[in-house]
Amino acid sequence: MQSEERDEYVDESEFSELAKSPAEARAVKKALEMVAGGGAGNTLKEMAQEVLTGRIGLREALNVSAYTEQVAQQSDSVRDRWDGMSEREREALAADGERHLEELQREIDEEQSEKMRSGTSKSAPRHSGGTWSP
């Protein structure tokens, strides 16, 4: 069933207004996909599935009190872990995040290159005008 739901998911462009780059938009989508798997509890699973299927926007979802309460609880846990880290651990985590975003950007670039390569090997567009005659 999850693969059926995944087919219906919005693409990462849905998150581009919230992100600074296509890689960040992809990271948001991947994070929502993980949450939709249920690891963060049923309430956030529901929220992620609603957002990923396009039934509600992410900004709208964050205005739903049940979702906001769960996000706040999760944020407290993350903040507690962050506060317990040394400066070196924080720097390492930040570097890991940067590497992850770079990896996502490489994926995006490769996908775009592949689309360009496969697009150039196709025949002329149907409406190119090259075969038109009165």
Rank of each mutant, 00 (worst) to 15 (best):
K30G: 01
K29L: 15
E46P: 04
D96L: 05
G39Q: 11
N63I: 00
I108E: 06
T68P: 01
V35N: 08
M1E: 07
W132Y: 12
R117S: 09
D109Y: 07
Q112I: 11
A36Q: 08
H100F: 04
G119Y: 11
E4I: 15
S118P: 05
L18S: 05
K122L: 13
L44Q: 08
A36H: 05
V28Y: 12
V35C: 09
S16V: 02
L52R: 04
I108P: 03
P134I: 06
A25G: 09
G57P: 03
G97W: 08
K45E: 15
G37M: 14
T131S: 08
P22Y: 11
M1W: 06
E87Q: 07
W132N: 02
E111S: 13
W82P: 00
V35Q: 07
M34F: 15
Q74A: 02
M85R: 01
K30R: 14
K29N: 10
A25S: 10
P134L: 10
R79A: 02
D80N: 12
K115W: 14
Q2C: 02
E4G: 06
R79K: 07
R26E: 14
L101R: 07
T120S: 09
L104M: 01
M1P: 06
V28L: 15
A61E: 01
S113H: 08
G84K: 01
E69Y: 04
W82E: 03
Q70D: 02
D7E: 12
E114K: 10
R81S: 00
S3K: 14
A94C: 05
G38A: 14
L93M: 09
E103P: 01
R81E: 12
S16C: 04
M47C: 04
K115N: 10
L44V: 08
K122Y: 11
E89I: 00
E89V: 00
A48F: 04
R90L: 01
E103I: 03
R88W: 05
T131N: 08
A23T: 15
H100T: 06
A66F: 09
N63C: 00
E103M: 05
F15I: 02
G41Q: 10
G84W: 02
A124T: 11
D83S: 03
G38N: 15
V51K: 03
G38S: 12
A94F: 07
T53F: 15
G84P: 00
K45D: 14
E50Y: 05
D96E: 12
Y67D: 00
